[in-house]
Amino acid sequence: MQKYLILLAGCPCTGKTYLVKQLQQQFKDSFVLTPDEAKVLYAESIGFNSKAEKEALEHKVWQFYYGVLQLYMDAGKRIIISEYPFSDKQKKQLSEFADHYYYQVITIRLVADFDILWQRRYQRDRSPERHLSHIMQHYHYGDKLEDRNLADDLVTKEQFFQICQTRKYDQFALGQVIEVDVTQYAKVNYSGLLDKLKQIINQ
Rank of each mutant, 00 (worst) to 15 (best):
L174E: 06
A173F: 04
Q184L: 12
Y185F: 12
V155K: 13
V182K: 00
T156W: 06
K187W: 07
I178L: 15
K168V: 00
I163W: 05
E179M: 06
G175Y: 02
I163P: 00
Q176D: 13
E158F: 09
G175F: 03
V180K: 10
E179L: 04
K187E: 15
E158N: 10
Q159T: 13
Q165W: 02
F160H: 10
A186G: 14
V155I: 14
I178R: 06
L154N: 00
R167Q: 05
Q176K: 15
E179G: 01
V182Q: 03
Q171H: 11
V182W: 01
Q176P: 08
Y185A: 05
Q162V: 12
C164L: 11
Q165Y: 04
E179V: 13
T183Q: 01
L154Y: 02
Q165S: 10
L154Q: 02
Q176Y: 13
K187S: 15
Q159Y: 04
C164D: 12
K168A: 11
C164N: 14
V182R: 01
A186T: 07
D170G: 11
V182F: 09
Q159N: 08
D181T: 09
K168C: 05
Q171P: 11
Y185R: 01
T183K: 06
G175T: 02
I178T: 08
K168I: 03
V182S: 14
F161W: 12
R167I: 04
Q176E: 13
V177E: 00
E158V: 10
Q159P: 01
Q159K: 08
K187T: 15
F160P: 06
V155A: 13
G175W: 07
F172M: 00
I163H: 04
I163E: 11
T166D: 03
I178W: 08
Q184P: 00
Q176R: 14
V180G: 07
A173I: 07
E179C: 10
Q162L: 09
Q165D: 07
D170L: 03
E158M: 11
T166Y: 10
Q176M: 14
D170K: 09
T156Q: 03
C164H: 12
I163K: 09
A186D: 11
K187M: 14
K187G: 10
L154T: 02
F161A: 11
T183G: 12
V155W: 08
D170E: 13
Q184C: 10
F161G: 05
I163C: 01
A186M: 06
F161D: 10
R167V: 01
G175A: 07
Q176A: 12
D181R: 14
D170V: 02
V180Y: 10
V182I: 11
D181C: 13
T156N: 02
K157R: 07
K187A: 05
K168R: 14
D170N: 15
D181S: 11
F160M: 09
K168E: 13
K187F: 11
K187C: 08
A173H: 10
E158D: 15
F161E: 11
G175E: 04
E158W: 03
K187Y: 14
V177D: 01
K187Q: 14
A173R: 08
Y169K: 12
V177L: 03
K187I: 11
V180Q: 15
L174Y: 08
Q171F: 14
